[in-house]
Simulated scan of single mutants.
Amino acid sequence: MKRTRFSARKRISPDAGELGRLATGLAESGGRLEDHLWEAQLVALTERLLADGAEDDINAALDRLYDTHADAHDELADLVESCAESCVLTHQGRDFDILLFNAPVLAWSRFSIPAERIGGGTLQSLKVQLGAHVFAAGADIALVDFLYSPDQLPRSFVDTWRLLRELGGAALEHRDLSLDVETLPETSRFLSDTRYLVGAVAVPRGAPLFRWNESDGNREQAQKEWVKQGGPCLEPLLTGCAFQPLLADSYHAACRNADSASRPYSVHASAAFLQTTLGQPTESLRAVIGGFHDRQLEEFRISFGPRDSDAVYHGVVWPLLGAEDENTDIIGEIEAVLRESGVKEIVSLDQQFPFEFCDDCGAPLYPNLEGETVHAEMPESANTASQTLH
């Protein structure tokens, strides 16, 4: 996974340098046999660094390769993610493949979106539905008894690796993991956000992991059944929320899928929120789209207001992801989503807006019809605590 980094050239440790050398060899390999040679050495070193907690060495190697060899950077990032989210553990004399997984849930609410402990009955119901519709027959599943917000997920490769090992052991012992919630950071409040059900799955070495890895399964059917059967199990955790479960996948892939899916979801949620709060149809709204730049284009911000004035009632941030840049038709995608949401009047501004936030409260500023950046402010008659959809 390519990560945007801006770093000064500096000396790095021997281990970080060796990571770079092996990743470069893998990126420049001419065939699968050579791939296996480089990859085996790279996996061994990466797993040692993760076990030692050497996050700085891993990040230093990624920083250096980002500046010097993009393909090697991507090879190393993919491999580090794989090592942080999967492993082989031995239990009672047998080897098992362990995968850390994530089942994201998109949600929005006029009230606070919960991030809270999951009760035992709900946890077991979720495991039953995951086992029946998402994972392969015979897979052992362990869940964390907490519905994470984005602020509360593991913050590093090393933290992710440690959670993998702890949850993997729990799966092999047919138990779940009780989280110490006192150590978790506070959750930022947004009208639209993502929650994460995190767990590990264990299967005998080389056996199928997911339902769609089996000959009679497919991903689309798994998604359909998980939403249909797993969705009701999530309702007690998301009181007062509209929500959309996403299909569970390997930890990092699921996070990326949620980041991507949350962008159109936030736009649809914004239109529904404004329609409900203002008591007006979405056709009465105007949307203004502007691109916000730091050293490069970072994100688009979408403001919502009435068609008969230049007021800005509400805003949505649409960040660029992965390989997206100025040459990607993001505006066309945003406009299509706005039309699906019922917004008819859409204005796309060509100017480059500075990547700025309010000095007082830290909220993003949104473009108005005149090309200025302003706070989103709901009218006084609408009683709501936040004007940002995340």
Rank of each mutant, 00 (worst) to 15 (best):
N257W: 02
A272G: 12
V317F: 04
G240H: 05
G315L: 03
R263H: 10
N327L: 09
G230N: 05
E299L: 14
A242S: 11
E299I: 11
D259N: 11
P319V: 03
Y313S: 03
G240A: 02
P232D: 09
A254K: 01
E326T: 08
G291D: 12
Q275F: 01
L285I: 02
D249R: 06
K224F: 13
P245Q: 07
D294M: 09
A254L: 04
K224Y: 14
L278W: 13
Q275M: 15
R286G: 02
T276H: 13
E326M: 11
A323P: 03
D310V: 12
Q275S: 13
A272I: 09
H268E: 08
D249C: 06
F300A: 08
V288Y: 02
Q221G: 13
E324H: 09
E283S: 09
T277L: 14
R307P: 00
R256N: 09
H314Y: 15
S262F: 08
L246Y: 09
G231N: 12
E299K: 08
F292C: 10
S270K: 05
S262H: 10
E326A: 14
K224H: 15
D308K: 14
V267N: 00
Q280N: 05
G322Q: 09
V316Q: 03
L247A: 01
E299S: 14
P236R: 15
P264W: 07
L246R: 04
Q244C: 07
S250N: 04
T277P: 00
F300L: 14
Q296R: 15
R295V: 08
V227T: 11
F292W: 10
A287K: 01
T282E: 14
S262A: 15
Y251S: 03
I302D: 01
Q244G: 00
L246H: 09
L274G: 01
P232W: 09
H293I: 10
P306C: 05
F300C: 09
V317H: 00
S303D: 07
E235P: 00
V312N: 13
S250K: 12
A272E: 14
H268D: 11
A271N: 02
F300H: 11
L321G: 04
T282D: 06
E235W: 02
E324T: 09
V317A: 04
Y251V: 03
S303P: 04
A269N: 02
V316R: 08
N257M: 13
R295S: 11
A323S: 13
L237M: 11
D325W: 12
L247R: 04
W318C: 08
A271Y: 00
F292K: 00
A311E: 15
R301V: 06
Q229L: 08
A253L: 04
D325Y: 13
I302V: 14
D308I: 11
R286I: 10
D310C: 13
R295M: 11
C255L: 15
Q221P: 01
Q296T: 14
P232L: 00
Q229W: 13
D308R: 10
D249E: 12
S266Y: 00
A261G: 07
